[in-house]
Amino acid sequence: MKDNYLIRLEDLVNNPTPRVPICLCLDTSGSMAAVEGACETTGETIYQDGRTWNVATGGIRRVDELQKGVEKFYEAIREDEVAVYSAEICIVTFDSKATCVMDFANLDRQEKIPQLRPTGDTAMGEGVTLALDLLKKRKQEYKDKGVDYYQPWLVLMTDGVPNGNPEQLNRAINRTRKMVDERKLTVFPIGIGNESDMSVLDKFSPGRKALKLQGMKFQEFFAWLSKSVSKTSQSMPGESIKLDVEGIKGWAEL
């Protein structure tokens, strides 16, 4: 089997279409096992991800709905005859550590999306740092092969309060803001549930406030995101693209 780095380079040679690099930076901390909907508490509690939770049975887990949303996102991109050749998706998860679970490559070459499993704390700074590093690396590969690309996208989704290294978090915030200000990055910070720290997410997004997901509308968000990717892939690199603000009402609390 070929090394992933060689596969990525081969993709750029075989398909010189301008690319839209997208990194999904997803919270997989223990709190993402929280359930919503029809559930019953057992009377037991558990301490996880920096706080005490009531143990419940039934309901729908946040992480399971997130998984379905990501899978729908991939399906929608694959069904778009333009975006399928332009979009490149990378998935970074963060819990007690940051992990790249799906690296950049042509979507046809990427394997099945790994199962997202909630565990540990919320090392958000470490997650964003890894995401930015991977976007930077992929951009350099585009440049080396003479492939045009659109402004990279960072989708940051979390349901909690960051409790990783505070210095790492501050560096990640400053680095993200600088890239956004220099028009080198488009960032979408999304809060999940009532425990998400929207004030921290706002810091990642100068000029546009972070948004909170309505309930468990992960699939609605990723449907909107796929349409935004499709619209971008049909434009010229460097062209200003207006987001579908009206469509945001279908999944975000405004």
Results as ranks from 00 to 15, higher is better:
residue 136 K to Q: 07
residue 46 I to E: 08
residue 121 D to S: 13
residue 43 G to S: 09
residue 154 L to A: 00
residue 105 A to L: 14
residue 167 E to C: 13
residue 22 I to E: 01
residue 229 V to Y: 04
residue 77 I to V: 15
residue 30 G to K: 01
residue 152 P to M: 01
residue 92 V to G: 00
residue 20 V to E: 06
residue 36 E to D: 13
residue 66 L to D: 00
residue 153 W to H: 09
residue 177 R to D: 01
residue 152 P to Y: 00
residue 39 C to E: 03
residue 113 I to S: 06
residue 158 T to D: 02
residue 53 W to H: 00
residue 73 F to E: 01
residue 161 V to R: 00
residue 71 E to M: 14
residue 201 L to F: 05
residue 64 D to F: 05
residue 112 K to S: 15
residue 78 R to E: 10
residue 89 I to G: 01
residue 244 D to M: 11
residue 28 T to W: 01
residue 194 N to L: 12
residue 225 L to A: 07
residue 216 M to V: 08
residue 119 T to Q: 06
residue 252 A to I: 06
residue 203 K to L: 12
residue 105 A to V: 11
residue 215 G to Q: 11
residue 178 K to C: 00
residue 18 P to Q: 09
residue 94 F to E: 00
residue 166 P to C: 13
residue 96 S to Y: 06
residue 173 I to G: 03
residue 109 R to E: 15
residue 101 V to L: 11
residue 144 D to T: 11
residue 161 V to S: 00
residue 149 Y to G: 02
residue 204 F to M: 11
residue 209 K to Y: 06
residue 73 F to L: 13
residue 41 T to W: 10
residue 196 S to Y: 03
residue 118 P to T: 01
residue 18 P to E: 08
residue 46 I to S: 10
residue 155 V to A: 03
residue 150 Y to H: 09
residue 138 R to W: 12
residue 134 L to A: 05
residue 60 I to N: 05
residue 28 T to I: 06
residue 132 L to Q: 00
residue 249 K to L: 14
residue 153 W to R: 05
residue 94 F to D: 00
residue 230 S to V: 06
residue 238 G to A: 12
residue 77 I to K: 02
residue 133 D to R: 10
residue 188 F to C: 06
residue 20 V to C: 11
residue 250 G to I: 04
residue 127 G to R: 04
residue 26 L to F: 10
residue 235 S to N: 12
residue 224 W to D: 01
residue 247 G to K: 03
residue 20 V to K: 01
residue 209 K to M: 10
residue 101 V to W: 09
residue 114 P to A: 15
residue 48 Q to E: 05
residue 175 R to S: 02
residue 112 K to Y: 11
residue 19 R to A: 09
residue 81 E to W: 06
residue 41 T to R: 13
residue 234 Q to N: 15
residue 177 R to S: 01
residue 98 A to L: 03
residue 171 R to N: 05
residue 191 G to N: 03
residue 202 D to S: 09
residue 12 L to T: 08
residue 195 E to M: 10
residue 223 A to V: 14
residue 197 D to F: 04
residue 114 P to C: 15
residue 196 S to G: 07
residue 71 E to V: 12
residue 237 P to S: 15
residue 101 V to K: 07
residue 51 R to V: 01
residue 79 E to S: 13
residue 184 K to D: 10
residue 172 A to N: 01
residue 37 G to Q: 13
